Amino acid sequence: MTPKQQKALALARARRRRAAAQQPQEQEAVATQEVPQTNLVEQTMNGVNEGLAELAGLPVDLATGALNLGISGVNAMAGTDIDAISDPIGGSGSFKGAL
């Protein structure tokens, strides 16, 4: 084996040893991180709240969709650049933000 090959082999072994030494430390760091725990009642209530927000905001979201469709038609016909309505007051996004 040439000296150059021996040096490359030694570097590869050193890198492998260094990676193996660091791996347990990384696993310990991941194992010590605490994950917030939620129970079934909290998860259920979050789902119910999200469903109610969607339902309460549905009429405004539908009207906004119709208006945005009209705006895109006007933009296409007249060559204008009117912005679409995003996150209207009374839409499901505003209810979700309030909950």
Rank of each mutant, 00 (worst) to 15 (best):
G91V: 02
G51K: 04
E42T: 11
S92D: 06
E42V: 05
A78T: 06
A66Q: 07
G70Y: 02
T64E: 12
N49E: 03
I71M: 05
G47P: 10
S92A: 01
S94P: 14
E54D: 14
N46Y: 06
N46A: 14
M45R: 10
T80K: 12
Q43D: 07
V41L: 11
Q43P: 08
G91H: 02
G70K: 08
L52P: 08
V41A: 03
L52E: 06
M77W: 04
D87M: 02
T80S: 13
G91A: 01
D87R: 04
V74Y: 03
P59G: 05
V60L: 09
G57Q: 12
P88V: 04
G91E: 00
G57M: 12
G57C: 13
K96G: 12
F95V: 05
T64H: 03
V48L: 08
A53G: 04
I82E: 09
G90P: 15
S92V: 00
A53V: 05
G47R: 15
L69E: 07
A76E: 10
L69S: 09
I82M: 14
N49D: 03
A78D: 15
D83E: 13
G97Y: 00
G79E: 06
A63D: 05
G90F: 15
D83G: 01
V41R: 01
D87H: 07
V74I: 15
L69N: 09
V48H: 03
A98D: 10
N49F: 00
F95P: 13
I85Q: 01
G90K: 15
A66R: 04
G73I: 10
G70W: 06
A98F: 07
A98Y: 09
T44I: 06
G51V: 00
A76S: 10
K96C: 08
I71T: 03
P59M: 06
Q43C: 02
V41E: 04
S86A: 14
N46H: 10
L67S: 08
V41D: 01
A84R: 15
A76Q: 13
A56M: 15
A56F: 15
